[in-house]
Amino acid sequence: MRDYRDAVAVVALGACTPIGLTAQVTHAERAAGTTGFVCTEVRDDRRGRIRASRLPLLKEDRTRTQRMVALGVTALEECLAEVKQWGVQRLPLILGLPEQMHGAPWEQEELKEALEQQMAAVRLEWEPGEWREGRAGLFPALARARELLRRQRSPWVLVGGVDCLSDRASLRRLVESGRCLTEERRAGVLPGEGAGFVLLANAETVRQQRLVVKGWIVAESSAREERHFRQGEPNQSDGLTAVFHQLRYHPLVRGQRVDRVLSCQTGESYWAKEFALAYLRNAELFPEPLMIEDVAQGLGEVGAAAGALQVGYGLYVLRKLGGRRALVYGSSDGGCVGACVLAVQP
Rank of each mutant, 00 (worst) to 15 (best):
G323V: 06
Y270W: 12
C264A: 05
A242L: 15
A343N: 03
A308E: 04
L80K: 04
R144D: 02
E293C: 05
A15H: 10
G323R: 13
T26Y: 04
R325E: 14
F37D: 05
E176A: 15
N282R: 07
R224F: 12
I94W: 01
R227Y: 13
D61H: 13
G134D: 00
L171N: 01
W271A: 11
K320N: 08
N235H: 05
T74P: 00
D45M: 13
S53V: 12
G239C: 04
L342A: 04
V25P: 07
Q231P: 04
V73P: 01
L280V: 00
Q310P: 11
G330I: 09
E60L: 09
R248T: 06
C16D: 07
V302F: 05
G335K: 11
E99D: 07
R90G: 13
A9N: 08
A9F: 08
Y329V: 05
A31H: 12
M119S: 09
L124T: 10
P155K: 00
E293V: 10
Q345P: 05
A12N: 10
G330H: 03
E176N: 12
R151Q: 13
T74Y: 07
G255E: 09
G20Q: 03
C336I: 08
G232F: 12
G160T: 04
V261P: 00
E82F: 14
L171S: 02
G161I: 07
V337Q: 02
T40F: 04
S170F: 07
G314V: 09
R144F: 00
L240T: 02
K320A: 13
R51W: 08
Y316F: 15
M119T: 06
D333W: 15
G312T: 03
E301N: 11
P98W: 15
W86N: 03
L280W: 06
G48Y: 08
Q85V: 08
W216G: 01
A145T: 02
F229P: 07
S177V: 08
G215R: 09
P18S: 11
A219D: 07
C340S: 05
